[in-house]
């Protein structure tokens, strides 16, 4: 097979600036999103993910403007998420230049939005973002549940059942974040990633916890993800996209090395 595994830098955008936190709090400024996007495009990123984590809905115009300027300035696909409440929000983001739109809380509240969105925009454009946290006690079988609102709200929904449900409704991809690992640099929750990836027939993007290049390799090899997403290691210059991809290639993974020096 010659489809390549994807490396996706993620920009958490708050009030028009890139920020990064640890376990969804303690945010640090990490730059201008359009400049970051342009740099990642030039560096060989396979896609870009924008998550608008602005707390209020009044700032929607900011993210639309950021998406528009990014789509104009880079030639790689862009997924945008955060604050998507209705099909009209998806349309606005698509018209601004998003290739895929990610739905999180809105899908938890009303699963039907996934079906409506897929019917309108096609499954390939609809990503469901799942923030999952381990709820099983040591010694019990692994069990993860869905959290919303940046991890503050516990829904009681089982992550595997929910993933299957949104895939059946027409989601084209799952962006799976481990709340336990986000920002910790301890690596993906591989058991969670693999369990979800094997439960659905749509691609799963592993997210939350990348600290080393081996973590990226494990996410694909052990976690069975189709793509790996990371923020801090790229934003703060720990590793370049090229270093990540060369490392993955040396580990035997099929990656796209167009324009990347070996």
């Amino acid at each position: 097979m010659s489809l390549k595994v994807r490396v996706i830098p993620c920009l958490d955008v708050k009030d028009g600036r890139v920020v990064k936190g640890v376990q969804f709090v303690d945010l640090v400024d990490a730059g201008d999103p359009v400049e970051s996007a342009r740099a990642y495009d030039a560096a060989g990123a396979d896609e870009l993910c924008f998550l608008d984590i602005t707390a209020s809905h009044e700032n929607r115009g900011t993210i639309l403007d950021v998406v528009r300027r990014t789509a104009e300035n880079c030639f790689m696909p862009v997924t945008v998420g955060g604050g998507v409440r209705a099909v009209a929000d998806i349309r606005a983001l698509m018209l601004a230049g998003a290739d895929k739109v990610s739905i999180n809380t809105a899908a938890v509240k009303d699963r039907a939005i996934v079906g409506r969105a897929a019917e309108k925009f096609g499954a390939q454009a609809i990503v469901v973002a799942i923030d999952a946290k381990k709820v099983s006690e040591p010694g019990e079988n692994d069990r993860w549940e869905i959290f919303t609102h940046g991890g503050r709200n516990h829904t009681g929904l089982d992550a595997i059942e929910y993933a299957r449900e949104v895939a059946d409704l027409g989601a084209g991809e799952i962006l799976l974040t481990s709340m336990d690992r986000d920002g910790t640099k301890a690596g993906f929750d591989l058991a969670l990633t693999r369990t979800i990836a094997e439960a659905v027939t749509i691609p799963v993007v592993a997210s939350g916890g990348v600290g080393t290049l081996d973590h990226l390799v494990e996410g694909i090899k052990v976690g069975k993800a189709s793509a790996v997403l990371a923020a801090s290691i790229f934003h703060f210059g720990t590793f370049t996209i090229g270093e990540a991809k060369n490392h993955m290639a040396r580990a035997g993974l099929p990656v796209r090395l167009d324009g990347i020096a070996g």
């Binding site: 097979m1 010659s2 489809l3 390549k4 595994v5 994807r6 396979d46 896609e47 499954a123 390939q124 084209g172 991809e173 027939t201 749509i202 691609p203 189709s226 793509a227 796209r256 167009d258």
Partner: peptide, 14 residues
């Protein structure tokens, strides 16, 4: 043909 291949076909291919 291979069951493990996911649909949508999403990403970079030659």
């Amino acid at each position: 043909a291979e069951r493990h291949l996911k649909v949508p076909h999403m990403g970079w291919n030659t």
